[in-house]
Design a binder for these strands. Structure first.
Length: 464
RNA sequence: GGCGCGUUCGUUCAGUGGCCUAGGACACUUGGUUUUCAGCCAGGAUAUCAGGGGUUCGAAUCCCCUACGCGCUACCA
């Protein structure tokens, strides 16, 4: 590359809950883009919201990244040249830059109480005006403000948004976007508890200090881009390139959320999805393969990906298609790989483990492989369910017992022959035999699986 | 309410002024293989490219308006 500047991208998750599939979606593009250009993908933990902090959330984020194979190069757990990577450990840095920004005339101390702000918002709402801070403290003389700060008065620091002007920002996916500065609030940069907000800490100070070159984040940040833009200009810093990825949506078109969709990485793990399949599907949410291919590996994605090609259209996260894709990936697995996944997935499940430990497991897996969309599906394929048979089904079962008992050489051909007799004498469909023997109307091919299970097991099952 | 972004089959994506009487995938569906269900193979249906105005010899592709959807509008990220 002609550009000698090293590419650096990051995800900046908040440890406020379980890892979100949206974080992985961001990480996928970051990781792949960094990998492609021999750059660095790093993780910064955004734990400035002390109220919503969740104890083991950070660990879970790392575990999720590892599970997907999107392991970072720099982070709190790995260290790196720009440590610390945890925002709660960088408070003095933000304080310093907040003061610098005030000195630069880009921010100011504000002493307005929450009560006053609340009342202000109510009044604005009643008057059907935008609910924005009224800049009450904006023109307080700096010396006076400093005195009040030193005397211990509670304060926040606010951004001084230029007045009566157009702020033109650039998103690399959408192009130039214009905002009227008077409609942009003097947002809080430093909270009363001394912690910075996202706008100061992440988007500007840390991304500058950590030399982020390409900033990939969700579209929900687009409305605050002008605030970040202004700060870069106040500081005189070079801006990263901004890419706002389309937001993932629920089938009802709303933003993918816990309420309506499956947002937790844990859920996908518990349902038996393959990380590679999820990644492949996620890539398709904002990007398309030059040859319109839908199934491709992460390596292939890396060779083709370019952040510039990301699309601005918010897609609906279609679980059905993900399941189909997951099935495709399961079919691509070697026997050994699938076996390993099954053993790991069902290690707590004694019933399934008994099957997995049987001597004929390879054959069973072979039969099951094309019938699984998720690893979890294996269980209902191999574990029979209890059923109450109807009168007709009882009769068919009886014939089946008789025919099975006649068999001396128990193999799939003789079993099939016996099944055919039962089918023919009662004029019923094959699915009934599946119901009688497995409790479900369909499943693994009966002759093959019964051969594996053995005559005794088949008969005990029938006689119950 | 204000601001911003978006709008091609049910869903997703291709398409960047003529190759589009709009193509692929999921889902749906017909047939074949067959002991069920899958899988696999071969077919099928579904889009006046949100609507309306322009620009142009020519527009899904460029411009404007409207409608609709979503996002943001916190001392959360």
């Amino acid at each position: 590359m002609a550009d000698t500047k090293n590419i650096r991208v990051r995800i900046a998750p908040s440890p406020t809950g379980y890892p979100h599939i949206g974080t992985i979606y961001q990480a996928l593009f970051d990781y792949s883009f960094a990998k492609k250009h021999n750059g660095v993908f790093f993780v910064r933990i955004e734990d400035t919201d002390r109220a919503r902090l969740v104890e083991d959330a950070e660990e879970r984020i790392y575990a999720a990244l590892d599970w997907f194979g999107l392991t970072e190069q720099e982070s709190p757990r790995k260290g790196g040249p720009f440590a610390p990577y945890r925002q709660s450990e960088r408070l003095d840095i933000y304080k310093k830059y907040a003061e610098e920004l005030i000195a630069l005339g880009g921010a100011y101390y504000c002493f307005c109480t929450k009560e006053r702000l609340e009342q202000l918002h109510q009044e604005q709402q009643a008057a059907k005006k935008p609910t924005m801070y009224d800049k009450f403290c904006r023109n307080l003389p700096v010396q006076e403000a400093k005195k009040r700060v030193e005397s211990g008065e509670s304060f926040v620091v606010r951004l001084k948004v230029p007045e009566h002007t157009d702020i033109v920002v650039r998103d690399e996916i959408r192009g130039e976007i214009h905002f009227k500065s008077d409609l942009i609030e003097d947002t809080v940069l430093v909270k009363a508890d001394g912690y910075p907000t996202y706008h100061l800490a992440s988007s500007v100070v840390d991304d500058h200090l950590m030399q982020t070159t390409h900033l990939v984040r969700g579209e929900e940040w687009l409305p605050s881009l002008p605030k970040h833009w202004i700060m870069y200009d106040y500081f005189g810093w070079e801006k990263p390139l901004f890419f706002h990825t389309p937001i993932l949506r629920n089938p009802d078109k709303s933003k993918l959320s816990k309420r309506h969709g499956h947002t937790s990485v844990t859920w996908y793990q518990e349902e038996g999805f393959l990380p590679k399949a999820i990644l492949n599907y996620l890539a398709l949410m904002a990007w398309s393969h030059p040859e319109e291919k839908e199934i491709f590996s992460l390596d292939e994605f890396i060779t083709y990906v370019d952040l510039k090609d990301l699309k601005p259209v918010a897609p609906i996260f279609d679980l059905e298609k993900l399941k189909w894709m997951n099935g495709e990936y399961i079919r691509q697995l070697s026997l050994e790989e699938l076996k390993k996944l099954l053993n790991n997935f069902f290690k707590e499940d004694e019933v399934v483990m008994a099957v997995l430990n049987s001597s004929e497991i390879d054959l069973i897996i072979g039969l099951a492989q094309t019938r699984m969309k998720t690893i979890k599906d294996f269980k209902e394929l191999v574990v029979a369910e209890e059923v109450v048979l109807s009168a007709e089904e009882e009769k068919v079962a009886k014939t089946l017992i008789e025919e099975f008992e006649k068999i001396s050489d128990w193999n799939k051909e003789t079993i099939l022959a016996a099944m055919r007799v039962a089918l023919k004498t009662h004029g019923v469909k094959g699915s009934m035999l599946y119901k009688i023997l497995t409790g479900r109307e369909h499943g693994l091919p009966l002759p093959e699986s019964l051969e594996i299970t053995g005559k005794e097991v088949a008969l005990t099952r029938l006689k119950k």
